[in-house]
Design a protein around this nucleic acid. Sequence first.
DNA 1: CGCGGGTTTGATGATGCTCAAGCCCGGTGG
DNA 2: CCACCGGGCTTGAGCATCATCAAACCCGCG
Lengths: 190, 190
Amino acid sequence: MYTNLINHIRRYIELDDDTIDILNKYIKPVNLKKKDFLLKEGQVCRSIYFVEKGCLRMFFVNDKMSEQITQFALENWWISDFFSFIDNKPSGYFIQTVEKSEILSIDTSSFEMMLKELPQMERYFRIVMQRALAASQLRAKYMYELTKEEFYTHFCGSFPEFVQRVPQYMIASYLGLTPEYVSELRKKKL
Amino acid sequence: MYTNLINHIRRYIELDDDTIDILNKYIKPVNLKKKDFLLKEGQVCRSIYFVEKGCLRMFFVNDKMSEQITQFALENWWISDFFSFIDNKPSGYFIQTVEKSEILSIDTSSFEMMLKELPQMERYFRIVMQRALAASQLRAKYMYELTKEEFYTHFCGSFPEFVQRVPQYMIASYLGLTPEYVSELRKKKL
DNA sequence: CGCGGGTTTGATGATGCTCAAGCCCGGTGG
DNA sequence: CCACCGGGCTTGAGCATCATCAAACCCGCG
């Protein structure tokens, strides 16, 4: 059973066992190994994904043909290309596992039906989205006020365990830096 | 009556006249002139704001003592410092009118009570937040893939009327550019 | 053992910032 | 009605930060 998801929902709303059974009808578990894809550029992003265990990254390929990571998702995070998900537009992103992961997915129509059958879940998702928005406001603030060096240092200070968990070039990409520059910064610090 | 807000809600959920009356209990209209403040740094952001008419900007003051704009809100947009709003933390932001504006505000406790009395509004706000998240994902993508020059050009191309509406130095700040550099870019184009 | 992905190194250079000065123009007070 | 004031925009010189490119290196895995 999806203990992480259940606990996450219970942080924000009441959830009895019958409701959990109903929820289960709409949720599709996906077990993936390292580097499997949930979404590729050009496809419509038809689901939102919850990370029960593992780690996802979302990236696009820029004009220099290099991968530009815009988001990570760790345990207890939802991730999706909302622009594509909402309007059924083809996505410009890839979503891929960084490591072996257990993902729960809800596709567009299940999402709608689930919300119809369990309207209390509207509240849960309202809160989830609101918190995601707060997080993205915060991140934007850091990008505005910090230099790239400060941004890197701040990030390593804030998420030391995460920095261990994923390769350095991914951190670099996520922060909008080149791997070479990150390497230079590391040398300076140690 | 707040026709913009009503119409905006009706884009996403059904809304009968009785419900509107109930809604009214929770909404506080605020009329502001140019450069009035809704929030100042250090205060807790106790409300979310809807722009019926006019324009708001959200900014913080960086270490060089200059104002860094992170968001604008035009007609039919909600704005708030969600980080502060959710957790009752003091905000690092200012929210200020750019021009004479009619704002609707809902404070924390009204928001909770309103959602309790009108649970269908959870759906409305879930959708609003979801779309705001999509918008912020899109903006982040542009910041990653475009140079500052391209970012400026793209922005002017996407929102020509808006660029007319607010002073140039605010556009510069929002895009993370210096006014001097924007000036240089304009010269190049014309 | 060899291959290949990831990291490091160093030289070179562009993008976009800083600072200082001048200009333009609209508003305000005399 | 005019003069002044000041906020915003422009100009240009100099420079810092960070990207680019090419090469070498390191090391875990097949």
